[in-house]
Amino acid sequence: MKTPINDTLELIGRLDVREKMKNADLRIPALPLLEYDLQEIMHIEHRLPPEAQLKDIIHTAMISPSGHWATCAIKWLLQGFPLDDDIREWYQTCKKNKRVHQRIRQAAHRLFKNQT
């Protein structure tokens, strides 16, 4: 079951959470946003704190040992999230994650291969 978008936004916007995390890792409680289609999230990006922008959330997911979050991040890339050199570098770590479904890794490989 997906965490409601507004619940996630409320959590990462709470001052006490931001102070506890010292604004460094607000990307972690924002990871559930990756479970939604990219188009559903693009319109709320302006509501995210500067420490947890969409690209930052993708970074956290792609370098995570969790296959689930890395898979969700790759799905966003396949849905059209803009690729750049940072994301290409993070992909080098992510593609070795055997917890990411092979089908998703192969789709990501084709995506990055076509972008070079």
Rank of each mutant, 00 (worst) to 15 (best):
residue 1 M to L: 11
residue 2 K to G: 08
residue 2 K to W: 02
residue 3 T to S: 13
residue 4 P to R: 00
residue 6 N to Q: 14
residue 7 D to A: 13
residue 7 D to Y: 09
residue 9 L to Y: 07
residue 9 L to F: 06
residue 10 E to K: 15
residue 10 E to H: 14
residue 11 L to T: 14
residue 14 R to Y: 08
residue 14 R to K: 15
residue 14 R to S: 14
residue 15 L to P: 01
residue 17 V to M: 13
residue 18 R to G: 02
residue 18 R to M: 10
residue 20 K to Q: 14
residue 22 K to T: 10
residue 23 N to W: 11
residue 23 N to E: 11
residue 24 A to C: 09
residue 25 D to P: 00
residue 25 D to S: 15
residue 26 L to K: 06
residue 26 L to Y: 03
residue 31 L to P: 01
residue 32 P to K: 07
residue 33 L to Y: 04
residue 33 L to F: 09
residue 36 Y to W: 06
residue 36 Y to I: 12
residue 37 D to I: 04
residue 38 L to N: 05
residue 40 E to M: 06
residue 41 I to G: 00
residue 41 I to P: 00
residue 41 I to A: 05
residue 43 H to I: 04
residue 44 I to M: 11
residue 47 R to N: 10
residue 48 L to N: 06
residue 49 P to D: 03
residue 50 P to T: 08
residue 50 P to Q: 06
residue 51 E to M: 08
residue 54 L to P: 14
residue 54 L to T: 08
residue 55 K to V: 09
residue 55 K to Q: 15
residue 56 D to S: 12
residue 56 D to A: 11
residue 57 I to K: 00
residue 59 H to V: 04
residue 59 H to A: 11
residue 60 T to R: 10
residue 61 A to E: 10
residue 61 A to C: 08
residue 61 A to Q: 03
residue 62 M to Y: 00
residue 62 M to H: 00
residue 62 M to E: 03
residue 63 I to P: 02
residue 63 I to K: 04
residue 64 S to G: 02
residue 64 S to I: 04
residue 66 S to P: 05
residue 67 G to P: 06
residue 67 G to M: 05
residue 68 H to G: 01
residue 69 W to H: 01
residue 70 A to E: 04
residue 71 T to Y: 01
residue 74 I to A: 03
residue 76 W to T: 09
residue 77 L to N: 02
residue 77 L to M: 10
residue 77 L to I: 05
residue 78 L to C: 05
residue 81 F to N: 03
residue 82 P to C: 03
residue 82 P to R: 09
residue 84 D to L: 03
residue 85 D to F: 04
residue 85 D to C: 01
residue 87 I to W: 02
residue 90 W to C: 04
residue 90 W to A: 02
residue 90 W to N: 02
residue 91 Y to I: 04
residue 91 Y to G: 01
residue 92 Q to T: 15
residue 93 T to P: 05
residue 93 T to R: 13
residue 93 T to W: 13
residue 93 T to Y: 14
residue 94 C to K: 01
residue 96 K to Q: 14
residue 97 N to W: 08
residue 97 N to E: 13
residue 97 N to Q: 09
residue 98 K to N: 12
residue 100 V to C: 11
residue 103 R to S: 14
residue 105 R to H: 09
residue 108 A to E: 01
residue 108 A to Q: 03
residue 109 H to C: 03
residue 111 L to V: 04
residue 113 K to D: 06
residue 113 K to Q: 12
residue 114 N to M: 11
residue 116 T to E: 15
residue 116 T to Y: 11
residue 116 T to Q: 14
